[in-house]
Computed example of a mutant assay.
Amino acid sequence: MADRHVLVACMLVAFLVTFLATRLVTRAIRAGRGPFRDTTVGGVHVHHQVYGIFLLLLTGTAAFTYRPESPWVEVLAVLFGVGAALTLDEFALWLHLEDVYWSAEGRTSVDAVMLATVIGALLLIGANPFDEFDADGEATVAVSVLLNAAFVGVALLKGRVVLAVVGMFVPLVAFVAALRLARPRSRWARRYDPEKLARSHARFPAARETRLDRLVDLFALPPEPADRDPFSPEPAAGGLVTREPGGSRRSG
């Protein structure tokens, strides 16, 4: 069997390349540049997450059924990364059950991709808290996992999503995130008194644009639609496929 780090590297590289290529293609389609067109079947637009879901099902089934050796296991890892990117690039669609690719809600897809990248990077460098406790017995592992899960849960309730995800692999990060101030719109902040809530608003002002926000905008902000497209992008009905009037196209 191939080395775990090699497989993670294959998945991560394929994931990032596919995500970047997909965003370039969807932006080109919306702007009316290049030869790219949306795929439609009988007037039904097939979203690219459909291909991603089929790839995930195919690679998962093949991996569990055949347990292939190198080089086929690396091929499956690459295909899995491609499928994951195509699926998560439209995370907002299957979260909101409507076509919000170029809307404010569509930023959720980029957030999901960034979190998946963080997880992949941590796995690539070998961050695995379970390895640290293997020598101490099952009881120590169980207690450590439960404590860390509690810290991760608190961090999520406080709206510290990135720190919570990193904390799944680096327990100290989850512990620190659980102690820090919650974001003002998080569930945890509902317990704050007015003074502490004011501190939270000062720490996380709604109008502040962070470097992370600017990075997300780089991928999530839509280009100007093509003049030749008579239909402005409208939120479509929920599901994996959407029907658009007169066969008009929605990027992605």
Rank of each mutant, 00 (worst) to 15 (best):
A92C: 06
E132L: 12
T87M: 08
P245M: 04
P225Y: 07
A85W: 05
V13Y: 06
G60H: 01
E138L: 10
R183M: 07
W102D: 14
A178N: 07
E195M: 03
V110C: 06
A206S: 15
G246H: 08
T61A: 15
G81K: 10
R211T: 06
H96L: 10
T242L: 00
R30E: 10
L55T: 03
L86I: 02
T39M: 13
F15H: 11
D217W: 15
V241W: 05
F36N: 06
E244I: 08
E234G: 00
F80W: 10
E209L: 10
E98S: 12
F169H: 13
F151W: 15
Y101Q: 09
G43F: 02
L56G: 05
V13G: 04
A62C: 09
V162S: 08
G32A: 05
I125C: 10
T242Y: 01
L122D: 05
D89M: 04
E138T: 08
T18K: 07
S248C: 00
V100N: 14
V100G: 09
A127S: 11
P68L: 05
L115K: 05
A226Y: 13
G247Y: 02
F64R: 14
G126A: 08
G167K: 07
A198T: 06
G167Y: 08
A14G: 12
S103T: 14
K158T: 00
R37S: 04
A63F: 13
V241E: 01
E195C: 00
E74K: 07
S200R: 01
L97H: 13
L240A: 14
V241M: 07
A174V: 02
F130H: 13
L12W: 06
F204V: 03
F169P: 03
G153W: 09
D229S: 11
